[in-house]
Design a protein around this nucleic acid. Structure first.
Lengths: 123, 123
DNA sequence: ATACCAGGTATACTCTGTTATACTGGTTAC
DNA sequence: GTAACCAGTATAACAGAGTATACCTGGTAT
């Protein structure tokens, strides 16, 4: 299998079996939108509080964050815990499932860093 | 409480420096949308002709494909070559720049395959 | 008293990505 | 002559992601 892959490396990455296209489209669907991945990244990096998460993501509004968090909780990507402290505090935490996005996020951060000039210096 | 939180900073993937958030958001911006990545994947896998690319991506319309291809050509992600053959033929090819998306696409295909059940069997 | 923090909700609007459908112009096949 | 393939363009319309702005409850600080 791996040998086969190496051998067929005429192209820079693997052939597009319908199954792989489907997998790709599925993934795009679940991480769809502008905010999902930045939010996952933020929470996986230790931000637990609503305002902390918001502050860590430039440009996001409370409305969008609120909406995304709700849907992510429904989809078991995060947990939401309310602590009946003196002033009630709320904490969001990533589930193991959520952490499976790690490789994708890392690949994207890596790409973004490497291609900073091309983006900023566009005209 | 606060001390515990600080201590728990041994997390599953790296700390979210503002720089990394920015990189992530940049990447999301350039690959934004439903079709960009599937198209890149298709072309990088050897599809060159308009109809071949279209057939390889379930659900895409000629309009969307046409639009995306134009913008991708502008952004130097692909090249478009017209051959003055008997019936004129057009070939799209990926640039080296385009191929830098490989790791992201691969990570996403991988994720999609692994989480097929969760998506399809969702309720 | 008032101004600010946390954790949001409510309303309204915009924008554009996406869909649907039809059509063009040229070529080859039956 | 008509049907099908290539490589698209044209037009219209929609859905919902995203934005903007204001507001609410409750606590805390000065």
């Amino acid at each position: 299998m791996h040998l086969e892959k190496q051998a067929k490396k005429i192209l820079s990455f693997p052939r597009s079996q319908p199954e792989e296209v489907q997998a790709l489209q599925d993934t795009i669907y679940v991480i769809g939108g502008k905010w999902r991945l930045p939010i996952i990244n933020s929470i996986c990096n230790g931000n637990k509080r609503f305002r902390d998460i918001q502050r860590s993501i430039p440009g996001i509004t409370t409305r969008m964050l609120s909406r995304e968090l709700k849907e992510m909780e429904l989809n078991k990507l995060i947990t939401r815990t309310v602590y009946a402290d003196i002033p009630v505090s709320v904490e969001y935490e990533s589930t193991d499932y959520c952490k499976t996005f790690g490789p994708i996020i890392l690949a994207m951060i890596d790409w973004g860093k490497k291609h900073k000039k091309k983006i900023t210096g566009k005209g």
